[in-house]
């Protein structure tokens, strides 16, 4: 499900959202503000999500801990 392609699929979705934001931004003298802010927000959030996802895609280390109780371990 959530494999490497997710980043690309996410990018496509985000680009579509940006286009939609460009088209549907409220008209008027603040249109430029709406467009810039919405697209910038979407892009920023996407970058952050993608970076987080990519960093876990091929992890070089795995979680390790030694404070687990026996009852919990299989959860």
């Amino acid at each position: 499900m959530a494999n490497g392609w997710s980043v690309i699929i996410g990018l496509v979705i985000v680009v579509a959202m940006c286009v939609a934001a460009w088209i549907f931004a409220p008209k008027g003298e603040n249109q430029v503000l709406w467009r810039s802010s919405i697209i910038l927000s979407i892009a920023s959030c996407y970058i952050m999500w993608a970076v987080t996802f990519l960093s876990q895609l091929h992890p070089l280390i795995e979680p390790r801990r030694s404070d687990l109780r026996k009852e919990y371990i299989h959860h």
């Binding site: 795995e62 390790r64 801990r65 030694s66 404070d67 687990l68 026996k70 371990i73």
Partner: peptide, 10 residues
């Protein structure tokens, strides 16, 4: 496994 033993994940 005993409680407190070090475990890693995969």
């Amino acid at each position: 496994f005993r409680s407190g033993q070090s475990v890693t994940a995969r």
